[in-house]
Each structure stands twice: as C-alpha cells, then as structure tokens.
Design a protein around this nucleic acid. Structure first.
Lengths: 162, 162
DNA sequence: TAATAGGGTTGCATTTTAAAACCAGATTCA
DNA sequence: TGAATCTGGTTTTAAAATGCAACCCTATTA
C-alpha cells in the first residue's frame, strides 16, 4: 500500500518529516545551501533519477522550501532557490552533518570544518540550549502539563520512564 | 528498482540520512525520547505497520541508535532504549520540531513548550552558532579550501553563487 | 483449559523508486 | 536552413518498499 503521509498529524515533527523527511529532499536542500540552483546540477551532483528529482523539486516548491525562478537565460532555464523557510533548515542540516561526522565518520575524509565567514573560526556543535545558552540533553527537559503537544505522553510520566 | 542507499557516500549528511532519514525512523527515535520503549507502544502511538516497525527497530539497533534489552518481565518482553548515539539525535529532533511549529503550525495546537527541568524556563531555538555562541545563517559560513568535504563545491566558488 | 498479551513473521496487493528512453522548446553550430 | 545541443522535463518498465491482515509462538492470567 501507499506510504503513509503525515500532513494532518498533530505532531509537528511528523509534519516536518512529511515535507523534508524522505531520502532525497534534505540532500536537495543541502546542495541548494551549497549554491546549486539548476535541475541538471542537482541531478549530476546527487545522482538522483530525473523523475524523482522532478517530483522532489515540485514538492519542495509546493511546500515553499524552494521557489522556482525563470531566469530566461539560454532559452528555457529555471533556478530553484531556497526560500526563508528553506534556509531555516540550516540548523537541521548542519546538526545531521555533525551527527554523521561524529558517529559514522568516513575513514578517508576529515569532518566538515565549517567556519564563520567573518572571523574564520570554526562553528560550534549544534545543541539544544537553555535560556542562558547552556547545553541540555534529552534528560534535562520536560513538557509542562497542559501543553497540547504532550498529548502523547511527552513528559516522562510513566512508571518506567526516567 | 531499489531505493538508493548512501552507506558509503562521502557525504556525512547522506550517511546520516541512510540511518535515520526515512519516514519512520526519526519518529521512532522521537517517541523513544518521550519514554516509549516497547514494541506495542511504538506500534500504537505511531500507527505504523508491524512489519515496518520490526524492520525499523532492527535497523536502528543495527546502527546502534537503539539497543534491544530483554527485561524478562511477563514472559518474553523486550525494551528498545536509546544509546548515546541515539540520544545525540536530540538537537536534530528538536530542530525539526521547532521548524515544523514555525512553518507548519497546527491550527488547534500550541507549539511544543519544552522547558529546562532545573529552572523551568523555555529552551532556546536550536541554531548554528559561531565560537562565541552568536547565531549564524547559511550565508555567514564557508568551507576552508582544502577541506575534503568541499569536494562537491561546498564553498560558493561558482560564478552564480552568492 | 481457554483467553489474552507481547513480539514478532508471512502473504499479498498497492505504491514508490531507479534507470533509461523519449519529448519539446530554445540556442548554437555548420 | 538544418542538425546537434542544452535544459527541463515525461513515460515506460521492473524491482523494492509499504500497509494490512492473518498467522505463529511463548508466557501469563482467568
């Protein structure tokens, strides 16, 4: 049967994954962040099937992660550019990259060394922080009672949790 | 044909997505962070097909995101618990949730209000930061020349980029 | 002894995916 | 003028992945 979709899920993670949670979409967004804008470039860099790329680009445009711009250069030529919504995926993509570098390092590759354009210094590890900027783990947080997002037992209120 | 896998991709984002980049895996991890540990609970909370859940749990265990523990309670009973590698997905899950809340808010739902267990204060937005903790956008960073991760034109060196 | 719970596996129909071939408008080349 | 090329797709076909339901086995409870 068809893959399940989460358009109307009450869970915002599910709704997010519905837009960028498949095998290709985040890689398309990643390459868009690297500067790729054209169909053929995405296709060659990603090695993705053309029909799948069509589908993903259209879906990302539908979801306003990308916008399709006719730049009218050399005949029919379009560019796919990140919207603000798309650029807002930056922390997610970087966190994924750091996680991959940490837990599945490629033997023949130094991890990505991303630097601040102004100072030239290496960026921080992406982390969840408290109001003061101190790092928090999953065990350091809770969902206050009454928050509708806690419907599916978000807080660790079960006997075995903790 | 088969879906493409990225096990040996030189891109750490692709390798990360290979482990948790499908429709269900990150939702399983999310619920594990909420405290879910047992097969039937995952199945009921997620509404996932049992064979698919089997496959995903096994894959996550293979990839050491979860570990399977025989707690020998009430006969055959196992628990799936997050490993350190799995807990390390916390920033990614939270960033996804914040992105979903921001760009696809559910009309009938207040966004997740996650709080610091110690102070009770709301957590920060997950962001990419420079060495001093100041937020950075995708336009504020670059990949230094010579970094092997820049092979696929990570730095914006093309004529049209910028 | 039967019913039930936990944790799966198996079969089968439906979708998705990948690969390659094909298509159509615009442009450059000869 | 006409052929080749570039760009951005659509179509076709076969292999996987998915969802659903039914089945299986162990252990516990009624």
């Amino acid at each position: 049967m068809a893959r399940k979709r989460f358009d109307d899920s009450s869970c915002s993670v599910a709704r997010a994954l519905n837009e960028v949670g498949d095998w290709w979409s985040l890689l398309v967004v990643l390459h868009a962040m690297y500067g790729t804008r054209r169909f053929v470039d995405f296709q060659q860099e990603l090695g993705i099937a053309r029909n799948i790329l069509c589908d993903r680009l259209a879906r990302l445009v539908d979801n306003e992660v990308l916008k399709k711009v006719d730049v009218g250069e050399h005949g029919s030529r379009f560019e796919y550019r990140l919207t603000e919504k798309g650029r807002d995926l930056f922390p997610i993509v970087i966190a994924l990259r750091q996680w991959g570098d940490k837990w599945n390092p490629a033997p023949d590759q130094t991890p990505l060394d991303l630097r601040d354009r102004e100072t030239g210094r290496t960026i921080r590890q992406v982390e969840v922080q408290d109001a003061d900027g101190h790092p928090l783990t999953v065990r350091d947080v809770f969902v206050p009672e009454g928050n509708s997002a806690s419907e599916h037992k978000a807080s660790e209120s079960k006997k075995k949790a903790g």
